[in-house]
Design a protein around this nucleic acid. Structure first.
Length: 183
DNA sequence: TGCACGATGAAC
DNA sequence: TTCATCGTGCAC
């Protein structure tokens, strides 16, 4: 397992999103290290992307998106779930990749299909917002070399309000992987 | 200071 | 299709 560096995140968001597939999300809390293999993501391309939170401008909630790459943007949705994103590109670009599903690898017992369940199963909550992912307790790593993944591209989920941006193929997942969300 | 609503998930 | 549940963003 090789921890991803800041340089990995400081690149084109669509590239980072697709390369995050097959990587390992690691979170250690209260002495328990949980690991999940990322199988589904969505790219959010900055303030001009009407589906992205950063399209509302720099606010208290979205300021992490406007910050440096390689940090976690964690927010609460519908009053009961958290969603986790990885900030990409350069400071001010306000782009991120939403992690939508992982395949359980270590110390995960609950379901992991969908962004809310992913966070619940890996004990990711508001306290991890703005956390640096180039760290020792919360990070993403690459595993042993594998054959190229078959990646499916689809429109993003739950962003129908975003006009033409809702139709762009910015949701990526590993073909035939059973842990991809059904939505 | 109030209020409509959401990058969800589950039940009906 | 409806509902749980609450922080955020914006209207007033």
């Amino acid at each position: 397992m090789r921890k991803l560096s800041r340089a990995f995140y400081a690149r084109n968001t669509i590239v980072v999103a697709q390369e995050l597939l097959g990587k390992y999300l690691v979170h250690e809390s209260r002495g328990v290290q949980r690991v999940g293999r990322i199988v589904e993501v969505e790219a959010y391309l900055g303030p001009h992307d009407l589906a992205a939170h950063s399209s509302r401008g720099l606010t208290e909630r979205t300021k992490v998106m406007f910050g440096p790459p390689g940090h976690a943007y964690v927010y609460m949705i519908y009053g009961m779930y958290y969603c986790m994103n990885v900030v990409t590109e350069q400071v001010g670009h306000a782009s991120a990749v939403l992690l939508r599903a992982v395949e359980p690898v270590k110390n995960i017992t609950a379901r992991t299909q969908g962004p809310g369940l992913l966070c619940r199963s890996m004990r990711i909550d508001r306290r991890l917002n703005a956390h640096d992912l180039v760290s020792n307790t919360f990070y993403i790593a690459s595993g042993p070399l594998v054959e190229p993944l078959r990646i499916v591209k689809r429109p993003r989920i739950g962003v129908d309000y975003a006009g033409i941006w809702a139709r762009r193929l910015l949701r990526f997942y590993i073909r035939d992987n059973p842990y991809v969300s059904k939505a």
